[in-house]
């Protein structure tokens, strides 16, 4: 369930756009920052706040790699798998991460709930391919030998509430 605070913040966000539906993405970030992920019930709540059908909200949630329908681990590793990164070896990088984290096929989150690994769509830093974002830190080009230290460094971070940093529920805006 979303708190009144989060709901108000979403309503405020809607006021910022000529069409309130345009506030859906930031609103979903607000909801995810609070709950940690976006289960069906929360998607429904957001849909209700926008007078949208939940099918539409769900379509948006599943489209973006930064929304999660299931709880994630403490730390988020988004490794880009799109064309530029793929040509520069992201498949190997992803495989290495999976091996190091001990992820079994089909698993996204480690058993100890420390890490969630997402093979992500283009993260808009193709010049640093192959690249990744660890929580909110952009890393790249990644070399295979760096992988251990990336994992260790990430462990020292606070973890993610959401990959969009500093979401301010009060003001209903990010950054």
């Amino acid at each position: 369930m979303l708190s009144e605070k989060a709901k108000n913040s979403i309503l405020k966000l809607q006021d910022k756009y000529p069409v309130k539906r345009s506030a859906l993405l930031p609103a979903l970030h607000v909801a995810q920052a609070e709950i940690g992920y976006l289960p069906q019930k929360v998607q429904q709540e957001v849909a209700d706040l926008f007078d949208l059908n939940v099918t539409e909200v769900h379509s948006v949630v599943t489209f973006y790699d930064m929304f999660f329908e299931e709880p994630t681990g403490k730390h988020l590793l988004h490794v880009c798998k799109n064309i530029s990164c793929m040509l520069r070896g992201s498949d190997e990088v992803i495989a290495k991460f999976r091996a190091k984290l001990g992820l079994k096929p089909g698993e996204k989150t480690t058993g100890d709930k420390q890490f969630t690994l997402v093979a992500s769509e283009c993260l808009a830093a193709c010049d640093r391919a192959p690249m990744m974002i660890a929580n909110d830190k952009v890393i790249g080009p990644i070399e295979e030998k760096d992988i251990d230290s990336i994992i260790e460094e990430t462990k020292k971070m606070d973890g993610h509430p959401c990959p969009v940093p500093n979401i301010d529920i009060e003001r209903g805006a990010s950054h």
Partner: peptide
């Protein structure tokens, strides 16, 4: 059709790229 003609948003594209599927939540 659901968006434009029936207005019921019944079916949606889910996920993206080559993983795109058609359907409803869950």
């Amino acid at each position: 059709f659901g968006e434009i003609v029936a207005g019921d948003d019944a079916l949606k594209l889910k996920d993206r790229g080559f993983r795109t599927e058609i359907g409803t939540p869950n």
